[in-house]
Simulated assay, not measured.
Amino acid sequence: MKYLELNADLGEGFEFDAALMPLIDEANIACGGHAGDVDSMRATVVLARAHGVRIGAHPSYPDREHFGRISLPMPEPKLVASLTAQLWALKAVCIEAGVSVSYVKPHGALYHDVAHNPALAALLAQSIYEIDPSLALMGLAGSELVKAGEAVGLTVIREAFADRAYLEDGSLLPRTEAGAVLDDIAAIAQVESLWRNGGVYAQGGGWLPLAADSVCIHGDNAHALKFAQTVRKRFPRRVL
């Protein structure tokens, strides 16, 4: 990585969106599946526009009760219809604001499911291509989703995580496991490792090479804000 690009999940009802926005390069905006409505999308899009931040749709399983963090077995047509509705909801808000959606990043359980399930990854990638082939697709570096996006001709954005521990197969340690979410010191060390060495140490100590284009921080607490401020002081940022 020549520059360190940061992305964050925003528009989910937490209070730090406005403070985080000037520090990030890409905003993954909730568009109704797990969180978000027209008003929250509009407010977040306006913030992104003001700071020159690229806008990404952040669709999920239609599951507001569990914040999109539980896998939902759904017939393919129903899932595609839900994802299409979420994407177009954000696209409509962006058209109103005079900006555009640049990419799509699935949220929560859907993110993890498409990272490991080739058929589901192919379904999502093909659906996005059919909606708008100019959209990029953001997914876990080395995952099935990245492969599926490349296969259909989408631009892919390979994502790594600053504040989550990895398993040796490149997946994230589940949140239910101890040590899954890294504290400030460990997260900064992980970003440093990504930046300088092109990889991280996985749970258990094994080395995991990661070719990443963007690093995610979670935007739901003050910890994330302090972390983003520290990252911006320590690593170079692309100047547009």
Score class of each variant (00 low, 15 high):
residue 149 G to H: 09
residue 4 L to P: 12
residue 4 L to M: 15
residue 225 L to N: 09
residue 48 A to H: 03
residue 213 D to H: 14
residue 187 A to Q: 08
residue 12 E to C: 07
residue 200 V to K: 07
residue 109 A to N: 08
residue 207 W to F: 14
residue 178 A to F: 05
residue 193 S to A: 11
residue 239 V to E: 14
residue 116 H to A: 15
residue 14 F to D: 12
residue 16 F to C: 09
residue 188 I to K: 10
residue 226 K to E: 15
residue 129 Y to M: 04
residue 74 M to L: 15
residue 99 V to K: 01
residue 151 A to K: 13
residue 67 F to G: 00
residue 204 G to D: 12
residue 11 G to W: 13
residue 76 E to Y: 01
residue 188 I to G: 03
residue 225 L to P: 04
residue 137 L to C: 08
residue 173 L to V: 15
residue 222 A to T: 09
residue 137 L to W: 11
residue 119 A to L: 13
residue 152 V to Q: 03
residue 95 I to P: 00
residue 191 V to N: 02
residue 101 V to F: 13
residue 1 M to N: 09
residue 208 L to D: 13
residue 38 V to Y: 12
residue 167 L to Y: 07
residue 78 K to M: 14
residue 2 K to C: 01
residue 39 D to N: 08
residue 103 Y to W: 10
residue 177 E to P: 01
residue 76 E to S: 09
residue 10 L to V: 14
residue 4 L to N: 06
residue 51 H to Y: 15
residue 107 H to Q: 05
residue 123 L to R: 10
residue 167 L to G: 01
residue 162 A to H: 05
residue 52 G to F: 14
residue 28 N to Y: 09
residue 85 A to E: 15
residue 79 L to G: 04
residue 39 D to H: 08
residue 169 D to T: 01
residue 178 A to C: 03
residue 162 A to N: 04
residue 180 A to P: 14
residue 179 G to D: 05
residue 214 S to A: 00
residue 50 A to S: 14
residue 16 F to Y: 15
